[in-house]
Nucleic acid binder design. Structure first.
Length: 591
DNA sequence: ACGAGCTGTCATTGA
DNA sequence: CTTCAATGACAGCTC
């Protein structure tokens, strides 16, 4: 995040101001601008102070990191954090397993060495030394909290090969034996505490909980980290880039942070260059990771976001190819990556065609005339600011051709909420469109060097969002853009939800209509049946009536005429033979 | 060229 | 008063 501030030269600031002034559509109220403008001087002063403080802190960390890392460089000759053999002075953060070899080297650990020598044959020692990532009991890890994170951070990928079950068991046994020795425990604890003070933990004020968090986080996550680089990431474009920054994580702020941090850890493997431009990065592997981690954990979540966002702006990071860090990370709720379909070259070109003076109206023009500003934008981001890099996240870890990506991705991941599944539409199209849309805000964010991920801007709760805003020194144009991005992003999601609901309502109503139709048919059918039954009953009754009537005889033994008499039943159940004429009278009487 | 469908955005409204 | 969600309306894009 510091790097962000650094590149902001007065020239940049002027550009940004100009940009903002031109950005009429951004909607930043003039009054807002004026008001802020009045406070501009104060802000600038604050900004300068903050930058100074940050620089100092960075330098301190840098120095410490270098001190701790020098050894590593000498031995390995490369930045890749290898659970290298014995000599790992910076292994402070190393896991307890890794501490073993270290303990042997530290002079103050003579006793430990002796104990080790006694406990394990030379071969075993070598083994232990060569297998740093051996599994360690949880209890141990608690004892050696601080050291843990870094080890895994160092290089999960490299360490993975050592994690075979057998070596694990051996190591576990060895460790249990080792730890059962009080002296060794003391030594390790000593080392551990001393290591905690290492550069990465320069921020001594950091509560132990943070370290615990680190620890848990590392212990829990490694498997994923190991998988990510090689296998397609289930999270969609998470693993899209071998690169580290899975900015495009699903809408889960907290978990996202975790994953990001992890990926960050893994990232240094691929980003040796990164160390140069950034103070933190300049530090050797482990310390760098620690520093970033501590930053992330200690500061607001935005720190990380800032970090990831910065990538695109720091020329070297961009070079890393799969930078996709901030990438759309899915501004929208649907974390589904949007890969521009082959046919969307137009839209994709938009990414390249942003000019520094982008505003809404400009973006509109860009949409229609993508290529117009391309050259200009290329100047602004000469390194390699290509849309392709944005598309990368869409892909899985494996570098698939764009064309394949688009089709595959679209098939695998439905755009937007589940409700859309019901609505038939071309996903490629929608996705590419969405990406293009995303690119607009993203482009603006890039141009204005917004120091955090768009998804954060959109998804953070108001409180967190305000806190984030207050933590960063942002000019008027940046603030207005951020607000617009937040508004648009939320509204977009709201629109998606609204349409989803609408579709669900339609579907629900259709279902209800169907069920009602079915019920109607059923009732009609039942009615017909009842009608039929009633008719049968009437027939039966009629036949019974005639049968009974035919059995009646008068005084002369003659049958009564049905036309002259009829049978009537009273309410009490008694039956009378009533003459037809009287029957009418009876009815009248009843009435 | 036209229309349908999808999506993003804006403006408005109500909580 | 601010924030936010919901929604209608509109525009742009693709097919």
């Amino acid at each position: 995040m510091m790097e962000l501030e650094l590149p902001k030269t007065q020239q940049d600031m002027d550009l940004i101001d100009i940009l903002w002034r031109q950005d009429i559509d951004l909607g930043a109220g003039r009054e807002v601008f004026d008001y802020i403008h009045r406070q501009k001087e104060c802000e600038l002063e604050k900004q300068k102070k903050l930058e100074e403080e940050r620089q100092e802190q960075v330098q301190q960390e840098k120095e410490k990191a270098w001190l701790s890392q020098l050894h590593l460089d000498e031995e390995t000759g490369e930045f890749v954090p290898r659970p290298a053999p014995p000599s790992k002075p910076e292994s402070p953060p190393l896991s307890s397993e890794q501490n073993v070899p270290n303990a042997e080297e530290v002079l103050s650990f003579d006793m430990c060495m002796q104990l080790l020598a006694e406990t394990f044959p030379l071969v075993d020692e070598v083994q232990v030394a060569s297998q740093p990532p051996a599994p360690e009991p949880t209890e141990d890890s608690q004892v050696l909290l601080a050291p843990l994170p870094p080890p895994q951070t160092q290089d999960p990928v490299l360490m993975s090969p050592f994690l075979d079950s057998k070596s694990e068991q051996d190591m576990e046994q060895a460790w249990q034996e080792l730890l059962s020795i009080p002296e060794l425990q003391d030594c390790l604890n000593m080392q551990n505490t001393s290591l905690i003070d290492m550069p990465s933990y320069a921020n001594s004020s950091k509560p132990q909980e943070v370290q615990d968090a680190n620890y848990n986080f590392y212990v829990a996550e490694p498997p994923d980290v190991l998988k990510r680089p090689n296998t397609g990431c289930p999270a969609g474009f998470l693993g899209a880039y071998d690169g580290p920054y899975p900015a495009g994580l699903p809408p889960e702020p907290v978990s996202q942070m975790t994953v990001n941090a992890l990926d960050l850890n893994g990232s240094f493997l691929f980003y040796p260059d990164l160390m140069n431009p950034k103070p933190n990065n300049s530090e050797p592997l482990v310390p760098e990771v620690d520093a970033s981690l501590t930053e992330i954990l200690s500061d607001s979540p935005m720190d990380f976001a800032t970090f990831s966002m910065e990538e695109p702006f720091t020329g070297k990071t961009v070079q890393e190819g799969p930078d996709i860090p901030d990438s759309d990370s899915g501004v929208s709720m649907d974390s589904s990556p949007k890969a521009p379909s082959p046919g969307n070259s137009l839209e994709s070109s938009l990414y390249k065609s942003a000019s520094f003076t982008i505003n809404d109206s400009d973006m509109e023009e860009l949409d229609s005339n993508p290529g117009s500003v391309q050259a200009e934008y290329a100047e602004m981001f000469p390194v390699s600011y290509h849309i392709d890099e944005y598309q990368v996240p869409v892909t899985t870890s494996q570098s698939t051709p764009l064309s394949t990506l688009t089709s595959d991705e679209t098939d695998s991941e439905p755009p937007g909420s589940p409700g859309y599944l019901k609505t038939p539409f071309t996903k490629d199209k929608s996705r590419s469109r969405l990406e293009a849309r995303l690119s607009r805000d993203e482009q603006r964010a890039k141009v204005l060097q917004i120091p955090f991920a768009i998804e954060k801007i959109i998804n953070l709760p108001v409180e967190d969002f305000n806190e984030l805003m207050s933590k960063h020194q942002l000019n008027e144009s940046q603030l207005s853009l951020i607000r617009d991005i937040r508004r648009r992003g939320k509204n977009k999601v709201a629109a998606q939800n609204c349409r989803k609901r609408k579709m669900e309502n339609i579907v629900g109503l259709e279902c209800e209509l169907d069920s009602l139709k079915n019920e109607k048919e059923k009732l009609l059918k039942e009615k017909g049946e009842q009608h039929q039954n009633l008719r049968q009953l009437k027939q039966q009754l009629n036949s019974l009536y005639l049968e009974v009537f035919s059995m009646l005889r008068d005084e002369d033994g003659k049958p009564y005429s049905p036309s002259e008499y009829s049978l009537q039943q009273t309410s009490d159940g008694s039956v009378f033979l009533v003459p037809r004429s009287k029957k009418a009278e009876l009815k009248k009487e009843k009435k």
